[in-house]
């Protein structure tokens, strides 16, 4: 199946008759009854999971407004009053706004870099035959299985010797390097499925390889880029181990560092309400971003899901 020929997703609620099914005999009568049972069943299951997923989050939000004693005493009760000072305490101690900005910079930069470099490498590996191709491919793939923790100390020296320690751009480069394996793995598979006729046509028209790539292949690969971009975004946004070691300057901390710091120090101080306020604070923007861009995310995935 060619991605470019994928039909538009069936809008579930639109009611537009895509295919009339009335004329069909037998099988559909059975299907109707079955459909009803299935419908009740599926609603039931879906609702249960929805509750299981949202309860802890609702609970976290609720808890962020409680005082410490009642968090433990009666975990399910509603807060007696809204303790907004939990929030202000977490906000001022955790420097959420600074960390948020740093995170956006780092993740933004490395996401773009990962996609550009990853697609370049993947394209070459997927569509060109040259000695060492397989070797380089497996070298990249193997990287998926390296436990980052192992490399931390030597990596520190590499970064230090290049003068990139405690810099945002240094962190970006390292994030890119560690995101390449999965990106190359994913995009190589994707490029292989793209039709070669278009690229050949462009090439015959006198376009260089480079131009063919940027002007023809990359736009065609957009769905794949969106999919892998989302994978990488989530991974990089939540990355914790790398900045802990490579980015020790408190002014340049990213959100996860701030949060863990908050979690540990609130743990020592027993300030759990402050911790929950910090957690909720960190999760809301991402949640909001997802709800706003949900349509785009889903569309991107839809196009990229089937190759």
């Amino acid at each position: 199946m060619k991605t470019t020929e994928t039909p538009a997703p069936v809008p579930a609620e639109s009611g537009t008759p895509v295919h009339k099914a009335e004329a069909s005999p037998g099988g559909l009568e059975k299907g109707k009854k079955e459909g009803t049972t299935l419908n009740v069943f599926s609603h039931g299951v879906l609702v249960i999971w929805a509750i299981m997923v949202s309860l802890p989050l609702v609970w976290a939000v609720m808890t962020s407004f409680k005082d410490d004693a009642s968090i433990f005493r009666s975990p399910w009760s509603l807060p007696d009053k809204l303790n907004f000072d939990n929030w202000s305490r977490a906000w001022s101690q955790a420097h959420m706004s600074d960390y948020f900005l740093n995170t956006v910079l780092v993740v933004g930069g490395s996401l773009i870099g990962t996609l550009v470099l990853g697609s370049m490498a993947a394209y070459v590996l997927a569509r060109f035959d040259f000695p060492g191709n397989r070797f380089i491919y497996y070298l990249f793939i193997g990287g998926m299985s390296f436990p980052i923790m192992l490399a931390l100390v030597p990596l520190f020296y590499v970064v230090d010797n290049m003068g990139l320690l405690n810099t945002i751009h240094g962190l970006i480069l390292v994030y890119i390097a560690y995101s390449l394996p999965f990106t190359v793995f994913f995009l190589t598979a994707f490029f292989r499925t793209l039709p070669s006729s278009v690229a050949e046509a462009a090439f015959v028209d006198g376009a260089s390889h480079t131009r063919t790539f940027f002007q023809v292949m990359l736009p065609m690969a957009k769905p794949g880029l969106i999919s892998v971009g989302i994978f990488n975004f989530l991974g990089q946004w939540n990355q914790y181990m790398l900045p802990t070691v490579l980015n020790t300057d408190p002014d340049k901390h990213v959100l996860t560092q701030g949060l863990v710091q908050l979690a540990v120090s609130q743990g020592y101080k027993g300030d759990w309400s402050g911790l929950f306020a910090g957690l909720v604070m960190a999760m809301l923007p991402v949640l909001a971003a997802y709800i706003v861009f949900q349509r785009q995310v889903v569309q991107g995935l839809t196009a990229g899901a089937l190759k």
Binding site: L152, V153, F156, Y157, D160, T244, V245, T248, P250, V260, Q261, V264, S265
Partner: peptide, 16 residues
């Protein structure tokens, strides 16, 4: 400076 990650911040510096 104050940190909870004593070893991960300081280990490379002891080594170096």
């Amino acid at each position: 400076s104050a940190t909870q990650k004593i070893q991960s911040t300081l280990q490379p510096r002891f080594n170096g």
